[in-house]
Simulated assay, not measured.
Amino acid sequence: MTDTKEQVRHDPTSQVGRLLKRFKRDGRITNIQMVKEMFILRGSERVRELVKEGHNIRSIQLNRTTWVYVYEGEE
């Protein structure tokens, strides 16, 4: 049995599509930036969706309320 990952295409206007584009452009984003600049609430869930699809994203807690997500490419 071979493990083949299906290439997922996101609508570029969807939250996940916009977040993936931002990751590929800037490489990182904070949860605060997701809300204030991109109007994405529950950004951690959008990140989780991308990770589930095979994207490598590291989560780093900066303080009690701020996280930075660093995009490290695809598997």
Rank of each mutant, 00 (worst) to 15 (best):
V51L: 04
G17H: 13
T13P: 15
W67A: 01
N63Y: 00
Y69Q: 04
G54A: 09
Q7R: 11
W67N: 01
L19M: 15
S59Q: 09
P12L: 12
I60Y: 01
S14M: 14
T13I: 11
M1V: 12
R58T: 06
Q7L: 14
Y69A: 07
R48W: 09
L50C: 06
V51G: 01
E37N: 06
W67E: 00
T4F: 05
I60S: 04
I32Q: 08
E72S: 06
E74T: 06
K36V: 03
M34P: 00
E74H: 04
R25D: 12
L19D: 14
V8K: 09
L50D: 07
R25H: 12
L20P: 03
Y71H: 05
F23G: 13
N56A: 02
K5H: 12
V35A: 08
G54H: 06
T30E: 04
R9P: 10
R58G: 00
N31M: 08
V47H: 01
I40K: 03
T30H: 04
G17K: 14
I57L: 01
R22I: 15
R18W: 13
Q33A: 11
G43I: 08
Q15F: 09
N63V: 00
K21A: 15
M1N: 12
T66N: 01
L19T: 11
S59M: 10
R18S: 11
S59R: 11
E75L: 09
V8G: 03
L50Q: 05
K21L: 12
G43D: 05
D26H: 15
V8D: 07
R25W: 09
E6F: 11
L20H: 04
F39A: 10
Q7K: 13
Q33G: 05
I40L: 01
T2M: 05
E75V: 13
E75T: 13
T30P: 01
T65M: 02
F23P: 11
K21G: 10
M34Q: 03
V35Y: 11
M1K: 11
T4I: 13
D3E: 14
H55W: 11
T2H: 04
Y69I: 02
M38I: 06
R18A: 12
V47S: 02
R64V: 02
R64W: 01
L41R: 02
R9M: 14
V51S: 03
M34L: 07
H10Q: 09
E37K: 07
M1C: 08
S14H: 14
E53F: 06
L62D: 04
Q61N: 05
M38G: 04
V51D: 02
G73I: 04
R9N: 14
D3C: 09
K36L: 04
I29K: 03
M1H: 11
T65V: 04
I29C: 08
N56K: 10
M34C: 03
R18G: 11
E6L: 12
Q7A: 15
T65W: 02
K52T: 15
V70E: 00
R48L: 08
R58E: 08
E75S: 11
K21V: 11
E37H: 08
T2Q: 10
R22A: 15
S59F: 08
P12T: 05
Q7T: 15
T66G: 00
E75A: 10
E49H: 01
S44F: 00
R9E: 15
R28H: 08
W67T: 02
V35C: 07
